[in-house]
């Protein structure tokens, strides 16, 4: 399942009652591209990620990974086809240790009959991969710690480790640095820059410095619609974007 794949959205529409949360969004994100999605609160960023991950079903439009349409697929099938994600509010399993969480994630794809009796932590090779991944995200010292003892930032790191250990073809990151300490944010930014080119990434992030530095392209979402797509320079100088989003940032 490893490898990289492009991600294509074709005319996605999602309505919540009368609210148009996704307004005819079309974009093709190339293999290995880091695509940042920015936009004010409530613009529909998480809603878009939710549709790509399969948690929300679009009312119209199509989603493709590589050449394959995954529009009708559920969350599990999409995850198995190589889609990894983190959540805006970290979703973790509190009673597990960080190592158990990452090993489970690694083994989740291959639940054969032996998966019912072979111990989760019985495969040395997978343990090593899991430890290495925890190390990469900055949790190398905390492999035996229960997840409910982790700080907010550490949980986000763990979520990333759980996604990375499965070698996703497409990775969806919903505000991975929100609520992190400055040190943790820096580690995360460093990590994201190392991930560039290794998998296709959709990154939602409010920290403009990080976005401008890391993203190959940036898409600006306002009221559900993609109002601009372009390089960091394009976006910085786009008057529409300045009015709807960056302007706000400068004021606050």
């Amino acid at each position: 399942m490893s490898g990289i794949a492009s991600l294509e959205l074709r005319g996605l529409v999602k309505r919540f009652g009368g609210l148009l949360a996704t307004d005819h969004v079309s974009v093709t994100i190339a293999e290995g591209e880091l695509f940042a999605l920015i936009g004010p609160n409530g613009a529909g960023k998480s809603t878009l990620i939710g549709q790509i991950a399969g948690e929300l079903m679009p009312d119209e439009g199509e989603i493709l990974i590589g050449d394959q349409s995954i529009t009708g697929w559920g969350v599990v099938a999409r995850a198995r086809s190589g889609l990894g994600r983190t959540f805006q509010i970290a979703q973790t399993i509190d009673a597990f240790t960080t190592l158990e969480s990452v090993v489970l994630s690694r083994r989740s794809g291959s639940l054969s009959p032996t998966g019912f009796f072979a111990p989760l932590l019985g495969d040395k090779e997978i343990l090593d991969i899991a430890r290495e991944t925890l190390n990469v995200v900055g949790l190398g010292e905390l492999t035996q710690l229960r997840v409910d003892r982790l700080s907010h930032g550490e949980r986000k790191q763990l979520e990333l480790a759980m996604a990375l250990v499965r070698q996703p073809r497409v990775l969806l990151l919903d505000e991975p640095m929100a609520g992190m300490s400055p040190g943790e944010s820096e580690t995360m930014a460093q990590l994201l820059s190392e991930l560039r080119g290794k998998c296709t990434i959709v990154l939602i992030e409010h920290d403009m410095d990080v976005v401008f530095k890391l993203a190959d392209r940036i898409g600006v979402l306002a009221s559900g619609a993609l109002i601009a797509i372009g390089s960091a320079d394009d976006i910085r100088n786009n008057p529409l974007v300045r009015a709807s989003y960056l302007g706000e940032e400068e004021i606050t």
């Binding site: 948690e55 969350v75 995850a79 198995r80 973790t92 989740s108 499965r166």
Partner: peptide, 8 residues
């Protein structure tokens, strides 16, 4: 939510 998004 977490379990399913791991592909379980």
């Amino acid at each position: 939510r977490r379990a399913e998004s791991l592909g379980l």
